[in-house]
């Protein structure tokens, strides 16, 4: 029995596959986590692109831990959902693309958050963001939107094996 087959036999995977509500409870958690992480990243991106200039950038340093809780919720619910159907998902292009976009989206956010903190004039509200930050903000918007779209496509293409 290989690893992915073994995963589908774990207690949590059986719960997803066999209980009445396990699958929906996890999907609901995954949607709430998405709203927190993607939503927070969208707000960071539009602020860097020039919306809501009165909002101090320091606010986002308080928002990041909240976004991390959303990310943790989705890593947890996502891992269990994957365990229940890993054999199929591993070969589902939308799933692979989603993971790639989350990884790249994460890199973009880290680079953006770092760049913003180093850009004193922008951070303190004396100048607009650098071109580099704006490009990273657009990448953040695109990659996290892409991850949401890919997630939906998984729902439309998923079969159980």
């Amino acid at each position: 029995m290989n690893f992915l087959e073994g995963l589908q036999q774990t207690v949590m995977a059986r719960w997803v596959l066999e209980s009445d509500y396990g699958f929906y409870i996890l999907l609901a958690g995954h949607a709430v986590g998405m709203a927190v992480v993607a939503g927070a990243m969208f707000m960071l991106a539009i602020r860097v692109l020039g919306y809501g200039k009165d909002e101090p950038m320091a606010v986002f340093d308080r928002l990041y831990p909240v976004a991390w809780w959303g990310f943790a919720l989705n890593a947890l619910t996502g891992t269990i959902l994957f365990a229940a159907n890993g054999i199929h998902l591993f070969q589902n292009l939308a799933f692979v693309l989603k993971l790639v976009m989350i990884a790249l989206g994460g890199v973009a956010v880290f680079a953006l958050a770092r760049g913003v903190r180093q850009d004193q004039a922008f951070f303190e509200g004396r100048a607009s963001a650098s071109l580099r930050s704006k490009v990273l903000a657009v990448a953040t918007l695109g990659l996290w939107t892409g991850a949401i779209i890919a997630g939906r496509v998984i729902g439309y293409t998923m079969t159980y094996s």
């Binding site: 949607a31 927190v36 939503g39 927070a40 707000m43 606010v59 308080r62 928002l63 997630g151």
Partner: peptide, 25 residues
């Protein structure tokens, strides 16, 4: 799904400030 993320992300910035998680801004 995209719209709910926009809606909820914006509400996080507004409501968490008003709840008092931070008093910046």
């Amino acid at each position: 799904f995209f719209g709910l993320s926009v809606l909820f992300g914006a509400l996080l910035l507004v409501d968490l400030r008003l709840v008092g998680l931070w008093k910046l801004g």
